[in-house]
Design a protein around this nucleic acid. Structure first.
Lengths: 345, 345
DNA sequence: TTTAGCACTCAAACTAATCAAGTGCTAAGA
DNA sequence: TCTTAGCACTTGATTAGTTTGAGTGCTAAA
């Protein structure tokens, strides 16, 4: 249990340290705090806070920095999101204001905006229905030996892949295969499709194609890509900013983490309606030891739920970041509603 | 004009320095060289080499390192490409041995292989006919309001883009537009298409579509993407290895360079049949001051000419790198010939 | 032309000294 | 009981001074 004064001090320590990056001492606090107490008093309080594991020293006679638990307490009980700066509002308005022809452009642009506003790395995920279903499949002959496979889901995702085939393309065979897929698989959820693809479909396809394996590979490939959540990343290079001392190896593992869709998904975790902050080693991944992750969902009514996230150093100004994330999620939802309204009605 | 002995010394200096990274002194050379002379003699020769600007000191009493001119002389007159190590051959065989369904997979895989072999950053460009022509265009309706535009060139490049349209999709209008494009534009080179697109096409399209601008934007977009050379990059992260001292800013500008297709293209420069080495500030781009670039073309007979490249620190073991690039360009050409043979005949 | 010898230079590694910021603790005061 | 002035102490950072070792240029003799 913390006293009012202890909370005040903890808040000041976190704010000071996130702003300056320098351990904060009792004297500086005494000068800065709204109440009038001596540095000795503050020292006593700080000793108490340290006792509880909320702050710690970097060496025996240094000032204090927040521990992970201290940040946690701060984020849970003390922080108040900053309102957006006028400048931030301008940036959002002007970057999101234009016309877009695709959902993905809006989402990808959002990642860039978020990374610009924060100067950290940002992730965005477009709104997804919980289980999207296969709504269409096409095979489009392109040239002598080239075919494009296109797969569409009812949430509007499109995946496609071009491949070369040996031997002549037989239009009727293609037709038959497409009809088969559309008859048997459209309307199922993607995992269901995948299951069927391993069971009865190959047998049936064998009626139309001499060598169905190649085709099944392609189809499976496009299918798994469609089933995967697709994150956009903005401000990759910003990770370099806090790499100062940290070695090249950890940077490398960080980047490979970021570039693997599966890994990001597991790090970002399950969506929750609140804005969530995960701090340092609260994330199991070792490469993220010195980072914090702020995630938030956004709702686009019946069009599903999406996600935005910011990855920055543990030592980030949480109040400002929470303000940005909170405001942006709403701006984005609004923009998307407009978009859907325009194209759906 | 260099004497035999001076060449021998220059070669040894470059080899030593590229291997160890430490300035090389007269004593070490005296021990290492095949001829038997004292370190004092070597010192005299080195003074002569320095006189000619081929080597230089890092400070007044240090050993010597090659200057850009020294590397240049070495690469032009002294280096002999190393033969591949058995291990390298294995890597190439196993990574390039499998079956591929697309040219692009082979090319992109090649960038990865090259970066693995060298532990530098590698670029690959697929074989291109000098001026490829538009060979087909499709508009595929996907859902209620979604359309995919597909563009095919006679060199087998495929570009596509999905976009949303307001209002109902009218099948007949689409048909008409596609027919128009195919009638008027197929067979032209891409720059010609682009020119026509700005001149008479819009007028004609206005007959079929109420608001042609949206469509023209999309088509132009896909077109320019198809016209662009598309590089694959392997081993991006390897750039971090030589960043030790170099600051974050220059790293950032390096990465933004690498991620812009246009910029890479301009850096890689015009293809030449020989293997070309550009060293440090021989490239105008300032971010590349401490790097060298090895580029080579490969020919796939009537299927055109492609390019591979390696970007690493100026201080790279040129003999080994030249060996790898030389061998790999041939392996790749062979593999592609096989591929075309399989799908074309 | 080569080479032994020598004085000289400079970065790097190590040592010692000083500084500044901060702490804990004690004892006196409110 | 809480607050605070005072003081001894700790520690990382900075600075200056030393030492070491690799290397150089130059001279003079072979």
């Amino acid at each position: 249990m913390l006293s009012e004064r202890q909370m005040m001090i903890l808040r000041a320590v976190v704010r000071d340290f996130t702003n300056t990056g320098v351990p904060v001492g009792s004297k500086a606090l005494a000068k800065q705090l709204p109440i009038h107490v001596s540095s000795a008093t503050i020292r006593n309080e700080m000793a108490a806070l340290e006792e509880q594991g909320l702050i710690k020293k970097t060496h025996s006679s240094s000032g204090r920095i927040p521990s992970v638990e201290g940040y946690r307490y701060y984020v849970d009980h003390l922080v108040k999101p900053d309102p957006l700066r006028p400048n931030d509002i301008d940036v959002i308005q002007s970057s999101l204001g234009g016309d877009f022809h695709k959902i993905d452009e809006i989402i990808s642009q959002s990642a860039t905006i978020l990374s610009n506003l924060t100067s950290y790395t940002a992730f965005t995920l477009k709104p997804e229905l919980k289980d999207s279903r296969l709504s269409g499949f096409r095979l489009v002959p392109l040239g002598k030996r080239q075919i494009m496979a296109i797969l569409v889901t009812d949430s509007g995702d499109v995946e496609n892949q071009t491949f070369d085939v040996a031997g002549d393309v037989d239009g009727e065979q293609l037709e038959a295969v497409v009809r088969l897929i559309n008859d048997q698989l459209v309307g199922l959820t993607l995992p269901e499709v995948l299951k069927k693809l391993q069971a009865d479909i190959p047998v049936q396809i064998a009626n139309y194609l001499q060598s169905p394996q190649g085709f099944l590979d392609i189809f499976g490939d496009v299918l798994t890509r469609a089933a995967q959540e697709r994150f956009y990343v903005g401000g990759r290079l910003n990770l370099l900013n806090f790499s100062q001392d940290s070695d090249v190896d950890s940077l490398k593992s960080l980047y490979s983490l970021i570039d693997k869709t599966d890994d990001i998904a597991s790090v970002l975790g399950q969506p929750s309606d609140k804005i969530s902050v995960r701090i340092g080693n609260e994330m199991t991944n070792d490469a993220l030891r010195n980072f914090s992750l702020i995630t938030a969902t956004y709702d686009v009514d019946q069009h599903g739920q999406g996600m935005i996230a910011i990855l920055g150093p543990t030592r980030m100004p949480y109040s400002r970041m929470l303000g940005i994330v909170g405001a942006f999620r709403e701006e984005l939802a609004k923009k998307l509603l407009d978009y859907y309204r325009f194209y759906d009605e």
